[in-house]
Computed example of a mutant assay.
Amino acid sequence: MAATCAAALVVALMMVSWAAVLAAASLDTSPVPFQAGFMPLFGGDNLVRSPDGRSVRLKLDRRTGSGFVSKSAYHHGYFSASIKLPDDHTAGVVVAFYLSNGDVFPRNHDEVDFELLGNRRGHEWRVQTNIYGNGSTSRGREERYLLPFDPTLRHHAYAVAWTPTAIVFYIDGTPIREVVRVPAMAGDFPSKPMSVYATIWDGSAWATEGGRYKVDYAHAPFAADFSKLVLSGCPAAVGVGGGGGGARCAVAVMTAEFAVMTPAKRAAMRRFRRRHLLYTVCHDRVRYNGTVLPECDDADGSERDDFHRWGESKRVSHSRRGYRQPQQLQREDKDAAGGRPSTWPIGSLRAD
């Protein structure tokens, strides 16, 4: 079935004229007002819109978390949000920006995740990416990273570029992970239309050191701010036929700047991963009894020596990165935070 759909898509794309391709090159990636593209999902008054309608605050307290969802589902595209995370003690808190169709396909859903994982006071937030296709939750494809900045001081952009052939995760315009679709992935590659979600919720059971540290509601409410919301995709209602509109959109997505991995982008991605990648399923020889997921690319084994057999990095760790806190950095961070001292100085991570 997946092969038939892929073949149909290729045929549809081949029927698109070059004029249509050129016309589609101007894919709009500008932010949209909340009301234009999204609607509240849950949380009641824990979802607070800004007066201008262009940003949203999501809060978590003892009563509930909160979230919003796009009004449309999309069949590929580029989706982004600038997010400022809560500071202080955030163990167990999960802030997520992701694509999913779990409401439509509860037993065989697709998903593409950014999950931002809180931590104890003075410890670093971590970022986790993941994908599921056709309900493949038993074959999780997680990766976790540390960040080269304090995500609680200002907004940073987290984006997903999803095309028929690859998924690329971006942070502040730098690609951090590329999942290339290979035939052996079959239905594990997300292929059905998905909506765009943003949530904050209690992940005490697993989010911080496997559930060792829970959400402490003495520090609530926890608030995450979302702005510059981008929905640049192919609406699911158009499809890949329908007079060529869906095919033109698919071509526009596949040829857009965010989907094309240039040599410079790949070099930037390698640098980020070498400095900040904490865990990758691609080097986890324990989880799936030595089986390597088909999209993992380390044919010569050059990366393997940098990872333990359970997938954790030997180079990047909480205990080895450390912090430098010279007075100058502290003054700069205090100024950047509007006068409050930062518990996590910018630029203080020892990545190498």
Rank of each mutant, 00 (worst) to 15 (best):
P151E: 11
S136N: 12
H155W: 02
R144L: 11
H156L: 06
T174Y: 08
T129K: 00
D216C: 04
Q128L: 03
G122V: 08
G173F: 02
V112Y: 02
L146Y: 09
K214I: 15
E178H: 12
G210H: 13
W162N: 06
G133I: 07
A166D: 13
A184S: 12
R212A: 14
D150R: 04
I176G: 03
P106I: 06
V127P: 01
P193R: 04
D188G: 09
R121M: 10
W201N: 00
N134F: 13
D216I: 01
I200G: 04
E111I: 12
K214Y: 15
L146C: 09
H156K: 05
A186C: 08
K192T: 11
G140T: 02
F169G: 00
R141P: 00
V127I: 05
T165W: 09
G187V: 01
G118C: 05
S204W: 08
Y158F: 14
A184W: 12
T199C: 02
L116P: 01
G118W: 00
T163R: 13
A184R: 15
A184V: 03
D202P: 15
W201R: 00
S195C: 06
A157R: 14
R121P: 08
P151K: 10
T165M: 13
P190T: 04
Y145F: 10
D110V: 07
G133E: 02
D216N: 15
G102H: 11
G211H: 10
G173P: 09
G187L: 03
M194F: 10
F114Q: 03
